[in-house]
Amino acid sequence: MNSVASIVLNRSFQLGLLAVILIALATLPLHYQGYNIVRLLNIFMFVVLTVSWVIFSGSTGYMSLASAAFFGVGIYTSALLGDKLPIAVVVGIGALVSSCVAFLVGALTLRLRGIYFAIFTFGLVELIKHLTLWWEINMEDRRGRLVVYVENDIIFWVMLSILVATLLTAYFIRRSKWGLALQSIGENEEAAAHMGINVTLVKVITFAVSALFVGASGAIIATRWTYIDPGIAFNPLYSFMPVLMAIFGGMGRLLGPVIGAIAFTYLKEELGTEFPELYMLIFGIILIVAILYMPNGLVGLIQRLWIRGFRRQDADT
């Protein structure tokens, strides 16, 4: 047991394993064209949305419901520029535009705390949606746009790259002084300010950084949808989902939101296909049971079971 554990815990072994997984994923579309590409890229997308949400909201405690706004901005970037520029550039622009929007929103909303921040960001999604709608209809006399078509494997690779970038960013932010600053803002903002942290700057920049990935994933996923309009692009579902997934997985550590997003996306799709008539019912019950019996999310539950298992093992030996 011990020798196995020591090998498994060896840092280079871990890195190697990660590299193998990454390579396996990255080369998948070369020899496989089936539905799992789509399934995986959907999962990647929700992991990106959830982890980006956690980068800002998880540590600072500001619950943002603006994900759908950044996502939609990415989608619209793709719709407007998709046929004019290479897709990688479009994704980059989508990321930057979303990030700028987040920067502005962050700078505007510094006074808001708690639930007011959450609801402000939610209202923002709706405002952008209705403004876009109004603009399209009254200024351009149209509704909705066609988006350039991109092959699934390209979408897959782009999404995988965004995923890796998101995870790396989240990981290094957690490890850095910056992450500590965020943590202390979450614990006590006044105290953090007294400690000499530029609270405003840290919050706004983190918010803007987290929006990068959301915007990028919106820009690339739009190419799967072909036709978009403001109602489709700024769907509040994409604001709520990351929150649910993060809490479902448990926000204590980085792995929680990742597992939450994977499990949630997988579960939702399987229920929607296996029990289309009852899936909302089952899904609702799972949510309630989860919140009642897993206060620290899926990861918390696994951890509890694990520790219990370990104790028993310790007792046996």
Partner: peptide
């Protein structure tokens, strides 16, 4: 074989490809 797309565009496109590919 009917799947629920929940009136969501993203879900619909995925489900359609699932029906075709998987």
């Amino acid at each position: 074989k009917i799947y629920d797309d929940g009136s969501d565009m993203g879900t619909m496109t995925s489900m359609l490809e699932r029906l075709i590919l998987e």
